[in-house]
Design a protein around this nucleic acid. Structure first.
Length: 434
DNA sequence: TCTGGGGTCCTAGGACCC
DNA sequence: TCTGGGGTCCTAGGACCC
């Protein structure tokens, strides 16, 4: 086959993975942090990211913050600063795009680049192209990334994970065995604890074990996602690079854990109400509306009760949704059961501009609603998220035993909020100033 | 990892229809 | 009245990711 189309060529896919990304950004911004153990996540009470210096002392993601000084007393603990990390992220992807526009922003700290066919134009090997990308990111941003290079996304991911930090691992199409052999199956992207445990019963422990089974075995014992992984691991690229920037959501969720757990019906409902408000704020910010709301209650024993409701029309206004939420909540809530969290999910979101207004819609009422919420959103921007809240959420805002995230560090902010707080009785469209 | 928060995709089974 | 087969759509829930 002398001239196969470009699609027939083996792919060359780079996976770029930031090393302890959040902590590394902090170290890049604050030179005095360099070489020292740094941990982010102060606002959450658990470690979001730990620098390699901190990891060396046994601190990892998810460790409770109050355990950190016990492990390493001189750790620098900072709140997460997403704006800064996003900036680093943007610059990282911009550097990748100098090589090719086929860059997928998979998450804030990792991405793929398809460099297939670029050897000729650049007069260099794929390894060199990928290494240059790595060098540019490291020298220009002052952070390190690890790189995996191979012929499919899943293999490239194995590569970037293979050696960290600041690793470079190329997994060649004709000799992937040593890499697959050293990769436990649950280290493969897409294989979680459930699938790994199931596979272990079939005698499969490593990626190599998995890959060497034949197609019949895989299809009889596994489902579609695992078959796709199997192909990717064998070097057949089935997951495309998706270069489009992610611009919208199919769902928006808000959930909050409160300590201590509560069996107080009014308090738990207020938590739910607050989550609903927050979800709606985000939806409005993105111009999205929905008719479908899922809510869940999480018991102290981590049992979930989930229900779903449909609104009579699309909306991103919490007080309208409350009407649907109340009966759903009552159907879920069990007396004398301590709950530790509630959550709200807005699903099947569509852009506000695409909805069909019902003929029976009262334009005046709708316009008034839009004005009120525009004002609410503006107030929130100027004075903080919860200056204006639904009456039903009030218990969640005033009780001081709310989420951990609200407790530390926020005293002045909280006080400011207290004095400015309005209580709008929105179902009746009345505003009252407290 | 005695367990935080925000997402996406897949699948089995039921409802409904022909 | 009972029976079969097959398609589509929806829902609940599972699993996974960062």
């Amino acid at each position: 086959m002398p001239w196969g189309s470009l699609n027939d060529w083996p792919k060359a896919i780079v996976h770029v993975d930031g090393d302890a990304f959040f902590a590394a950004c902090e170290q890049a911004v604050h030179p005095e942090y360099r070489g020292r153990p740094v941990v982010t996540g102060k606002e959450r009470g658990i470690v979001s990211a730990a620098s390699y210096e901190a990891k060396a002392r046994g601190i990892s993601r998810g460790v409770a913050l109050h355990d950190v000084p016990k492990l390493c007393p001189d750790t620098i603990i900072v709140p997460s600063d997403y704006e800064t990390y996003s900036l680093f992220s943007k610059r990282m992807f911009a550097i990748m795009r100098r090589t090719t526009p086929l860059v997928e922003e998979y998450s804030i700290d990792e991405g793929f680049a398809d460099i297939t066919g670029l050897r000729g134009p650049t007069h260099s090997s794929y390894e060199t192209i990928a290494q240059k990308m790595q060098d540019a990111i490291c020298s220009e941003l002052g952070i390190t990334v690890s790189i995996g290079l191979s012929i499919s996304k899943v293999l490239a991911k194995i590569g970037s994970k293979y050696k960290k930090p600041h690793g470079f691992t190329s997994i060649p199409a004709d000799a992937p065995k040593p890499y697959l052999e050293k990769t436990p199956l649950d280290n493969v992207w897409g294989i979680g604890p459930q699938t790994a445990a199931y596979a272990a019963k079939l005698g499969i422990a490593t990626a190599l074990d998995f890959v060497t089974r034949d197609a019949v075995f895989i299809t009889t014992h596994f489902a579609k996602p695992q078959l796709e992984l199997w192909k990717e691991l064998r070097g057949e690229s089935v997951y495309p690079i998706v270069p489009e920037e992610k611009s919208t959501y199919t769902s928006i969720s808000k959930t909050r854990t409160f300590t201590p757990p509560s069996h107080d019906r009014a308090f738990v409902f207020a938590q739910l109400s607050k989550n609903l408000e927050n979800a709606c704020i985000k939806a409005r910010r993105h111009g999205l509306v929905t008719r479908r709301i899922t809510l869940f209650l999480k018991t102290q024993e981590f049992q979930y009760a989930t229900t779903e409701g449909t609104l009579s029309r699309h909306s991103a206004y919490p007080h309208e949704m409350m009407i649907a939420i109340r009966p759903l909540f009552d159907a879920c809530f069990r007396n004398n059961t301590p709950y530790r969290a509630t959550g709200v999910v807005l699903t099947d979101l569509i852009l506000d501009t695409t909805i069909q207004r019902s003929l029976f819609e009262l334009p005046i009422k709708l316009e008034r609603l839009q004005r009120i919420y525009a004002a609410v959103d503006t107030l929130a921007e100027q004075f903080g998220k919860h200056v204006v809240t639904l009456g039903s959420s009030l218990l969640a805002h005033t009780q001081h035993t709310t989420s951990r995230g609200d407790l530390p560090l926020r005293k002045t902010h909280r006080l400011k909020g207290e004095t400015k707080r309005l209580h709008l009785n929105l179902p009746l469209l009345l505003g009252t100033v407290r």
